[in-house]
Design a protein around this nucleic acid. Sequence first.
DNA 1: CTGTTAGCGCTTTCAT
DNA 2: ATGAAAGCGCTAACAG
Lengths: 338, 338
Amino acid sequence: MADIPPSSPSTLLDVARQAGVSPSTVSRILNGTAKVSDDKRRAVLTAIEEMKFAPNQMAQGLKKGRSMTIGIVVQDISSPFFDETLRGVDDGLKGTGYASVIVSGHWNAEEEADRIRLLLARKVDGIILLSGRIDDETVLGFSGQRPIVSTGRAIKTRSALGFKMDNEYGAYLAVHHLIELGHRHIAFISGPANNTDADDRLAGYARALREANIPLDDKLVVEGNYHEASGMLAMNRLFDTGQQFTAVFAANDLSAYGARLALYRKGIRVPDDISLVGFDDLPGSSYTTPPLTTIRQPLYDIGRIATHALLRIINGEEVRGEVPPLELIVRETTRRLR
Amino acid sequence: MADIPPSSPSTLLDVARQAGVSPSTVSRILNGTAKVSDDKRRAVLTAIEEMKFAPNQMAQGLKKGRSMTIGIVVQDISSPFFDETLRGVDDGLKGTGYASVIVSGHWNAEEEADRIRLLLARKVDGIILLSGRIDDETVLGFSGQRPIVSTGRAIKTRSALGFKMDNEYGAYLAVHHLIELGHRHIAFISGPANNTDADDRLAGYARALREANIPLDDKLVVEGNYHEASGMLAMNRLFDTGQQFTAVFAANDLSAYGARLALYRKGIRVPDDISLVGFDDLPGSSYTTPPLTTIRQPLYDIGRIATHALLRIINGEEVRGEVPPLELIVRETTRRLR
DNA sequence: CTGTTAGCGCTTTCAT
DNA sequence: ATGAAAGCGCTAACAG
C-alpha cells in the first residue's frame, strides 16, 4: 500500500551513480543550492524515486553542523499541563523540517541539567525549557552552546529568551472574583514550597484579600504540591482543623480536582455550599462536575510562541516574546454568597 | 553552579592533543574497546573533565550506524491516553543511553507513514508505534528497515512485534458488571467507525447482552469519537430520541466524562439515577465526581514492556510480549438497580 | 552548469 | 598497548 523503503537504505552516491551524475549534483538538487539542468534534474529525481532515497540525517547533520532537531525539556511527560504546551510546540514545528526530542527533568535541578547536557551532546539546534528548577545563570550558561527559550523566567539575551506569566496577577484575579461574589472566608491550597510560581500565586491571594481589607488567616492556607492527591489531603486538613470558609482557591486545577473529590466525599455541594476556583484551565476542566471556574493559562499558545521564538533565534532573527495574558474563566464552581 | 560546557564544543581530537595521545586512544577509553595504560587513561580522563568534552552523537551515529535514539509514534501528543504509555516508555529508556523522538500521526494513515519515514531518515534504531491507522502490511514493510514494536496489533516477526489488548473482553467485563447489578437497558457510546478497538468494544457489549438474553437495541448505541464533546453529544442524542435506559457504557473514559457532564446538566444523578462505566482508566478517572468505574488498561506497563521488547529486538535478543490483562475497576459511578 | 576534492567528528582496522 | 589511516554519507568550496 504505502511506499516502503528498501531494507538497505540507498545513499546519495547510489543515486548519483544510477542517474549518471556526480554526488554534488544530487546534493544541489536536494538542497536547491544551485541551478541544475532540467534533464539531469529529472534523471536524479526519478532515481531518488525509484530507490526510495532519503538523505541520512546524521550525515547531513554532521556536515552542516545542524541536526534539524530541537530539544524540549518538560518536567513530567504525562501531565496535562505540559501536554498542552507540547501540542503548541508540535504545531509550531510543523512544516519546518525540525523534529523534537523530548526529555523530562522530573522537577529535579540536577536531572534537568543532565538532560540538557544530553541534548547538547546530541547537537540539538536549540532547546525549549518548560518550567524547571535550574537557576537562570545555569540556563544562560547553557545558552552559550545553543539558543534556549524557557517558560517561567524573565531573561532576554541574544541566545536566551524567557516568558513569564504573571502568576501573582492570575491568583489575584481568582480571589478577587470570589470576593466580588461576597466571599470573605477564602481558603487557599498552595503549590509546593520553593517554587516561584507557587509563591507568586500566594502573593496574589494575599493582595486580593488585603485590598478588600480581609485579614489573611494563616490557618486558611494549606500547602499542596499541585497534584490531585495533595488537593484532597489539603481539603481534608482544612476541615480537620475546624476552619470556617465558604470558598477555596486551589493553586492549580489538578489540586482543585482533588479538593473537589474531598468535598464530594463529605457531601458538600459545589458551588452551593462552597465555591471552588482553580488555576491553569486544563482541557479537562471544562468537563469536571460541575465545570471548573479557573484562571486560564494560554498553554498551547505558550508552546507555539516559544517555538517560533526559538526558530527565529536559531535563524538569527529578531524576536519579541509576547504571550496572551492570564484570564479568569467563570464556569460553574463559584457562586454568589447569599 | 552547574557544570556548563564551553561555547565552542571541544572535539575528541582536542582531547587527544591536550592529553598527548592519539584520537584512537581517546576513543578506546570512551568506549572501553581495548586496554589502555593507566597513565594515559588518567591523562585523557582529566582532559575530558577539563574541556567538558562530550562526544558528538551525530558523528558517533554516522560512524557506528546507530543513533541511540528510538522513534515513538503517537496519535495525539496531548491525550492522557498516550501520556501514560509515554511515561512507561520514558522509564523503560532510563539509563539505556537511548533518547526518544516523539512524533504524532494525528490518527491519519498517510501522516503516520510520513512520520515513520521521517524517523527512518533520522536513523532511529527502532520505532514504537502506539495505535495508529496504517495497516499491518505497511508496518511489516517498514520493519525491514528498523525494528518496530506496535500496540494494537497482533504481529510477530523477527523485527516486528505487536501487542493487542483484548478490547472485546474488556467491554464484555464492563457490560457484564452492569448486568450483574440488575441493569437491562444499557446504552453504549461507541468509539469512531473504522477503528478496530472500537469495533471490538462494541462486540464485547453485544456479547454480554446476548449472554444475558437481552436483545441488542440499535437505538441504544450511539456513535462517539473518543473525545469528551462526543460523549456529551451522544448522551444528549440518547435523551432526545426518548430512549429508556438505566446505565451507560462509554467506549472510553474521555467520552464518559462528556456523558457525565450531559447528565449533570440534566440534573440526573450518577450513580443514583444512571450508572456509568468508562474504558481506559485514565489517571483522572480516580478524581471525577464521583470517581469513575471503568476498565483498566495497563497503559504505563504497555509503554515499559514495548520499550523493553524493542530494545531486545535491537540487540538481537529473544522477546516475549506479555502484557497484563484488562480489568474492571469498580468505583462509584455504578450501583445496583433496585 | 557540473565534477573533483576535502573534510564534519568519530570509530576501527591494520600495523607496530 | 598505541598510532596512522581510512571512511561512515553528505555538503561546500574550488575549479573548470
